[in-house]
């Protein structure tokens, strides 16, 4: 079945539908990760997005339940140069994800890189005209200003790992399973809380991890206030959106990146050691730093803030993904070292 992608600036790209039929609205973004398509599709940080893979073939090695980073897919559509089935395309069908193959992904990525991530829609079939779709796209809300964590966070508290040398609370803004797995593998007992948990509830833990998540951090004022109330009471590690919330809680602003950082090969400079980490990244917003003394990591692509450290508040954070999945393990010790630090004072 034929299908098309319509961007809010009027550009259209054609493809063939290999996933669920129908249409999907969202922000068109691209990821440069060459492997890990299932992890990408199920990462809650891709909520509300149409994800273009720069990888030339997607689906070669099938799917496996243990590779899902959450209960369901969050990408609303995947755009591919060449989709390979049947496992992957069946999976897209079963999970209601719109999938396009045969898309000129090179042109699409260059367009998004030059013009920025933007609202878009994917439509399967040929019943709708591009003009109708375009009009509908322009009525959709933009990603800037979108508060999406309530839709992906757990509704109830749950225990991921009951036993451990230290007790860690994870505030779930759209957490990936591999973060929970890494915490547990490093010897932490892990309880997971909804995004709107209050500070008193988690302050009793040996440490609190602020999870990644989708959307714009700016409208999350209630979550940022909770982080602010928490600071100084127990050690805090922020990852991705969690990093941005720590930044907001410590007085920084945030801004939207033109086309975001999404991929598994983003070089980050550790300013304390002058070493380079090759990291997994997935964020469309970044922290505006006025206080460079607290910045521990910065992007070697665009010099944006990639990590913060507030020793007095026992709080630190990473904009990139130390849990990888998909991506390199260069930064894995960020989670491991944090848990070790908690053990040392527990």
């Amino acid at each position: 079945m034929s299908a098309m992608l319509v961007l809010e600036d009027g550009a259209t790209f054609s493809g063939t539908s290999v996933g669920a039929a129908g249409f999907a609205f969202g922000e068109a973004v691209f990821t440069t990760s060459m492997s890990g398509y299932q992890e990408v599709a199920t990462d809650p940080s891709f909520e509300g997005q149409l994800v273009c893979f720069t990888a030339p073939m997607v689906g070669n090695y099938g799917v496996a339940t243990e590779r899902s980073e959450s209960r369901r897919p969050h990408a609303r559509a995947v755009l591919m140069r060449e989709a390979r089935g049947p496992q992957w395309t069946d999976w897209l069908h079963e999970h209601g994800v719109v999938g396009l193959t045969g898309v000129d992904t090179r042109s699409l990525v260059l367009h998004l890189r030059d013009q920025g991530s933007m609202r878009a829609a994917v439509v399967t079939g040929d019943e709708d005209s591009p003009d109708e779709v375009l009009a509908a796209v322009r009525e959709q809300p933009a990603m800037a200003g979108a508060a999406l964590v309530a839709g992906v966070s757990t509704k109830e508290q749950y225990t991921f790992a009951a036993d451990g040398a230290v007790r860690v609370a994870v505030v779930d803004y759209g957490c990936k399973r591999s973060i929970l797995r890494r915490l547990a593998a490093n010897g932490a007992a892990v309880d997971v809380f909804p995004h709107d948990v209050d500070a008193d509830t988690v302050a009793t833990y040996d440490g609190v991890l602020l999870s990644p998540g989708p959307g714009d951090p700016a409208p999350l004022t209630a979550e940022a206030t909770v982080v602010q109330e928490l600071l100084g009471r127990t050690p805090v590690l922020g990852v991705c959106l969690g990093h941005q919330l720590l930044a907001v809680a410590t007085g920084h602003g945030t801004f939207k990146l033109p086309f975001g950082h999404r991929g598994a090969n983003h070089p980050v400079l550790d300013r304390r050691t002058n070493k380079v980490l090759v990291t997994s990244q997935n964020h469309g917003f970044a922290v505006a730093a006025d206080d460079h003394r607290s910045v521990t990591h910065s992007s070697l692509y665009d010099d944006t803030v990639e990590g913060l450290d507030y020793p007095d508040l026992r709080a630190r954070s990473a904009q990139f993904h130390p849990e990888a999945s998909p991506g390199p393990h260069d930064a894995a010790s960020i989670i491991g070292d944090w848990v070790e630090g908690l053990k040392a004072v527990a």
Partner: peptide
Amino acid sequence: APQMTLPDEAYQELRN
């Protein structure tokens, strides 16, 4: 290039 048939976890094992 790049490899196209290994899942991410297997590729990262080779990378490490």
